[in-house]
């Protein structure tokens, strides 16, 4: 069961382009300088990824 759950984690890789695009586009709508866009976009993507990972861990523990 645990192995199966671990295998399903690879499905979450689909989230990476989605998170990166969301972070970058949101950041681009807030800043004009490309360096700010990239830096803050990556930071926001990191936050989203961390938050989702936290929720995933909590759900794996609960269920």
């Amino acid at each position: 069961m645990t192995l199966f759950a671990f295998w399903r984690i690879f499905d979450c890789l689909y989230a990476i382009p989605l998170i990166l695009a969301t972070g970058m586009v949101y950041s681009a709508s807030r800043h004009e300088d490309i360096h700010d866009v990239l830096r803050r976009g990556l930071r926001l993507s990191g936050w989203i990824f961390g938050f989702m990972l936290m929720v995933l861990v909590v759900m794996m523990i609960l269920f």
Binding site: L18, T22, Y26, E32
Partner: peptide, 21 residues
């Protein structure tokens, strides 16, 4: 993914109209 891409383009549309926040 395709639905999110469409919604993200709304940010780009408003950015083109009013500039960055």
């Amino acid at each position: 993914m395709t639905a999110m891409a469409g919604l993200l383009n709304l940010f780009a549309i408003f950015d083109a109209l009013y500039g960055p926040v």
